[in-house]
Design a binder for these strands. Sequence first.
DNA 1: TTGCGTTAGTGGTCTGACCATTTATGAAAA
DNA 2: TTTTCATAAATGGTCAGACCACTAACGCAA
Lengths: 199, 199
Amino acid sequence: MSNPSKMKVYQEVLNKIRHFIQERELEDGDRIPSERELSEQLNASRASVREALRAIELLGLIETRHGEGTFLRTYKPFHSVELLSTFVLTEAQTKNELNEVQFMLEKLCLQELKRLNVRGIEELKSLDDASEQIHNELFILLFNQLGNQLLLKIWHLVASFQQLTEQEQLDTSDLQSIIDQIKRQEYDQAIDTHSRLYT
Amino acid sequence: MSNPSKMKVYQEVLNKIRHFIQERELEDGDRIPSERELSEQLNASRASVREALRAIELLGLIETRHGEGTFLRTYKPFHSVELLSTFVLTEAQTKNELNEVQFMLEKLCLQELKRLNVRGIEELKSLDDASEQIHNELFILLFNQLGNQLLLKIWHLVASFQQLTEQEQLDTSDLQSIIDQIKRQEYDQAIDTHSRLYT
DNA sequence: TTGCGTTAGTGGTCTGACCATTTATGAAAA
DNA sequence: TTTTCATAAATGGTCAGACCACTAACGCAA
């Protein structure tokens, strides 16, 4: 009754934990107080603290180790992918949209590589043998060249969704062609070859 | 001891709720069973059920009304944005990355509009008066033209993050130019003008 | 010094209780 | 009959306390 904020306890706990992290400038791997400590310091029951922590955990922001404690970790959206997919993929057209977006992001990547005139990507050499995961490995490598982790995260998110829809495997020979073309810095050709993957 | 899956209870509850929703093809606004019902049917304590529900709620997938029940709602990523920002924006370079990604996505949008040879966008006429939100309105409109909701969601997510960083306002005159150029289907010029926004 | 059992701390889970809010119920009043 | 309103039932919100499972540190013994 005396709560004017009307906000749920677990949400207030959430915010307090956020502030706690911000003020102390905690980083990846740092430990946050135990559930019992938080419960006491934040004046909330352990159950409410846990509700907040579980929510944060599902978002992939913290990691919980039984018997050890709760630790920060850099945001990895991949953990909530499967869950979100249930709700996002219900619309019939979404699978097709996923395909489109993944294609566009990869094309964007190749265009940027060309624009930045990237040359001599050392790591490409280790990709010669075509494996199942070659598509993923290739673009993780390429997006890393752009130096934008966020774009990589977004692409990875979309690509992960794709895998859940049991998409058919792409042609590895075309992938090999793309690798070779990038080695020779023939980005326009690589973009063309890449387009063929998605038709 | 007898749990070979080693998965936490709240995560199993999570999955069971997902399956429940999938099987019954529940849609936006539909009600899911009460916490006590779920607790009984899923053979878990109400506390564990709540941990799962709170996590789903934070993701923006369900809505909870005191005294009424819990209801599905279409996924809106905007709710968890503020929370995520605390954790994502800690890295110094991230703001810059956000800027880059937003720019690239918008450029991608314009390129696709050109490629699809989109003409005669009716809704542009109502954007003549430059408002504060014109940037958002414009690209929501343009992404909608592409007919890919997922891409729109991704852009909107990134743009929302941006707003939290108190980014300075963009030049509205340039935005007006872009609108005019799109009206005349001068996409190349629009792309050039757009580049100027982010320099 | 090394090895290992003990123990304290921590997350994981459950039970049961009580409060706050909404909606349905049904009796009383018009 | 219709309307009004107190009551009850269902539901989410929150808490306290208990117990289990796991980890790491401690300290004693070999």
